[in-house]
Design a protein around this nucleic acid. Structure first.
Ligand code: NAD
Ligand code: NAD
Lengths: 224, 224
DNA sequence: TTTTAATAAAGAAATATTTCCTTATTAAAA
DNA sequence: TTTTAATAAGGAAATATTTCTTTATTAAAA
């Protein structure tokens, strides 16, 4: 949340945090191209984010650019990765080895972004037979036992909406610090538990509403 | 974007739109339970959204509650579905029949939320052999031909980041109105094209940053 | 019937976030 | 070398969003 600037503590806006991985991803695509530097307007053109927004975002994480030149690409990538903790590998369990669960397990990029899924759980024994990246799969009844053996930080929920709260409670009871919820139902949790709702259905709602209204956004350039 | 209130046009905040499907999903879980009504504080307790926020959100779509009683659940569900256009089925193509693409194709709930995926495309011919829900699969080279035969509103991008812009350009050139982008790279598009970036990686970044900072949110109750 | 307490509504205030404006810097062009 | 134009930076302003406060309503309790 905080970044030091001189001595003052500045508060980093949540939307800024959400944009940082976008910058990171974009910068990877321009690294090793002809230029060593990229300017805010240069990024803005591709990402449809206002250039001063980009400069502000970078200033929150104490990144300074050079006038007339911009930002050094590789250095910026490094700073973003450090800030976002890509080099600190957090252990995770995933519950729900369904369609989405399998996609998440197979997505290797998470390892580069600092999350390692080390076990999967399902209530359906048939699902435990499948081999996905050699991931260890267990029945949900074994959750407590496994987490006691290997404590984890992140619990990923990919079960149907009606089961999500139950699994969340199980995770919280067993010391999970952060819950990543892919079900459409928001979860109840104590304030000390980090909850991230990735609601794919909310995204669809946004698209459908924009199609229906067919009006420009209030903040034209807002990407997230 | 707009809701009529008396004669004045009110602007609906984007975060409100994103919360509406969460209310909808939650209300489904309490429908057919003992109570006919639910109050804003009642919803707030489960969803960790401030009760006055909920009342405000509902007021934007002209939903009125009854003092001491709250909101009639079934009627509210209906209004939300109408507002979000769940009953208007929009046609969609999906490009990228990989791990995530398959999960999205298999997710039947989209049909209830007003989106029907009617064809899939990939560059890898092997992928076109797989049978997923009997969906018609084509080589990406046939995109233009297929869209001319059956115009669609929504193009879903589930290809690797480096290919995403190319596919977006193809979609735009062929009249797609809205692009739903699951790749980590934000896309460039003319202003009249609706772009929705569902950045799963941004969500992870948020979790990792909160784990690292271990500080409360500024807006405590913010769920999206 | 009267009182109490829970609630919605509406507007005000507080807070958060983006965009604008002005200045300073500096690479590249003249 | 001097000028020009592109850019970053920092603060101000504008805008957006959430939260608070007050008031009115009404179901339930007394
Ligand atoms: N697939 C998608 O593209 C998609 C899109 C939007 C939202 N979602 C959400 O993601 C979640 C998962 O979706 P899906 O398509 O993978 O569903 P799915 O039905 O394919 O998989 C759900 C899995 O959870 C398991 N499960 C159910 N109850 C369980 C329990 N108590 N403990 C452990 N495992 C349990 C099931 O056996 C199944 O394997 C759902 O909440 C869905 O709404 C998915
Ligand atoms: N799987 C996940 O859980 C996950 C998580 C976060 C982000 N993503 C993003 O979603 C996207 C898809 O991820 P995935 O895991 O399904 O990857 P994947 O590699 O499994 O699938 C990608 C598919 O796209 C196809 N493809 C490549 N170039 C193409 C082209 N030009 N035209 C048509 N098809 C083409 C490939 O043949 C492949 O089938 C990626 O951008 C990824 O970053 C996925």
């Amino acid at each position: 949340m905080t970044g030091e600037k001189n001595n003052k503590t500045t508060i980093i806006p949540i939307p800024t945090i959400r944009r940082l991985p976008l910058y990171h991803s974009f910068l990877l695509t321009v690294r090793d191209k002809e230029n060593i530097h990229i300017s805010a307007p240069g990024i803005a053109k591709e990402l449809h984010i206002h250039p001063t927004q980009i400069i502000k975002d970078f200033s929150y994480i104490n990144v300074k650019g050079r006038t007339k030149v911009g930002y050094e690409i590789k250095g910026l990538i490094k700073i973003l990765e450090d800030f976002l903790g890509y080099h600190i590998l957090r252990k995770a369990f995933i519950v729900g080895i369904g369609n989405l669960g399998i996609a998440l397990i197979k997505y290797h990029e998470f390892n580069n972004e600092g999350m390692e899924i080390i076990a999967g759980f399902d209530i359906d024994s048939d699902k435990l037979e499948t081999n996905i990246n050699n991931l260890e799969l267990f029945h949900i009844n074994n959750f407590k036992e496994r987490i006691n053996k290997t404590p984890i930080d992140i619990g990923i929920i990919a079960v149907p909406a009606c089961q999500a709260q139950e699994i969340a409670d199980l995770m919280i009871k067993n010391g999970v610090k952060a819950i990543w919820n892919f079900s459409a139902t928001p979860l109840s949790a104590p304030d000390n538990i980090i909850i991230e709702n990735t609601s794919i259905d909310s995204s669809l709602a946004m698209i459908k509403w924009k199609l229906h209204e067919n009006k420009p956004l209030i903040y034209k350039n807002r990407v997230l």
